[in-house]
Nucleic acid binder design. Sequence first.
DNA 1: TAGATTGTTAATCGATTAACAATC
DNA 2: TAGATTGTTAATCGATTAACAATC
Lengths: 245, 245
Amino acid sequence: MSQHRHPGAPGRAGAVPALPDLPEATVARLPEYLRALHNLADSGHETVSSEGLSAAAGVNSAKLRKDLSHLGSYGTRGVGYDVALLIEQIEYVLGLTQRRAVALVGVGNLGHALAGYDGFASRGFRIAALLDADPSRVGEEINGLVVRHVDELPVIAVQESIAIGVIATPAAAAQRVADQLVAVGVTSILNFAPCVLSVPEGVDVRKVDLAIELQILSFHEHRKASLTALPGGLAATETQEAIGT
Amino acid sequence: MSQHRHPGAPGRAGAVPALPDLPEATVARLPEYLRALHNLADSGHETVSSEGLSAAAGVNSAKLRKDLSHLGSYGTRGVGYDVALLIEQIEYVLGLTQRRAVALVGVGNLGHALAGYDGFASRGFRIAALLDADPSRVGEEINGLVVRHVDELPVIAVQESIAIGVIATPAAAAQRVADQLVAVGVTSILNFAPCVLSVPEGVDVRKVDLAIELQILSFHEHRKASLTALPGGLAATETQEAIGT
DNA sequence: TAGATTGTTAATCGATTAACAATC
DNA sequence: TAGATTGTTAATCGATTAACAATC
């Protein structure tokens, strides 16, 4: 089935093309492929095999081909994938053809770092607003942006067409901020606060909890230690694990 | 099977007890349960049902019970789980009975924030060393710790019994740092640099990529937009998704 | 054509979930 | 005992993987 669905090409009836309904696991890996492809493009590669790309992205090649097959057929048998075309296609699917505006709420320790993080700008996003509930923080300038009060969110959301909200507040404040984001129409939230957010249907929440990541590693440390200490002394066999996203 | 395996109790033959070989998905949720349990304990609950705990942790109750069943039987039918006992048990399994020492490499923008992140200290970890390859950064004091040169790692790793390395360098430097960590015996790495690390068997790597999280949200934004724009106008139905770790 | 590599198949594996028997 | 809730079963679902036919 070699039906190229070019970026922006009409699906049927000339409407906005319906995106393929990708498996979540695939969606989570596409950004990884994209990063690897950009590296390849920067180093002058015009074409790459599934073997080559999968190695660069740290997955196995069957998985990569399966993932890409969900997007349609963009490879050439016997040759590989066109790097530029695949970049274009993945960026289209991920919705990165438009630069999405991000509102970052909470400019404490972590928020400060996020506000200055280059990776956002270079990979499809624009931090359009910094907000905080603490009046003493309002007015501070970080990276060329002035911190504004979170109550200004309704105005700012419209002015800046905020698409994604990032919560970097303490846990105690996070639910209230989430409610405020939802109230102004934000349907995608990245939550750094260590708590569960409750949001209405149709709102996507992703969570990053730094301490949890360490605790998962701690489990594996503990496990490895208990294995090596075993009577039989199994040592560190079969313990490898490069864990995905 | 109500075989309580108490924290620190011998498995067989009086050796260190072999940890249960938990499913990865379960391991990733245990920290979430632990956080919820601490909240419950703080608010005076002595007992909690699977229904109550699962709600607090944002998962369904069948999944919670299944997860906990892997640890052994720590609940009481008709009653629920003893909060304190369950905390103790999960902390034991996660290896949090000892406070693990963390070396943080790269004190740029993000590294600075991580160095000051309270969540680490309060949830079982001790940032024992701050390191950087840039001599102009060495000597700087952050949160009571002096930044040292990454080449001092061999000495520091031993002195501080470093268990986990956190990489917060630019992508270009990350592999070299990973090699250095591995060389001094670190077998658990949390990588914030946007690149794939290659490490020998027995070394666990977890990755946090902030831009990838936004790109995944971007996909869902794009998808929701394409659905509402559809001829039939399916609107935002069945798009809910509170994505786990 | 011969060699290379994709896209797909089908088997396997692991995770989720509802339902309920066991039991406090 | 009656009510509540766990721990487990079994069915289902989704993700991974090796193998290979299709095809450049």
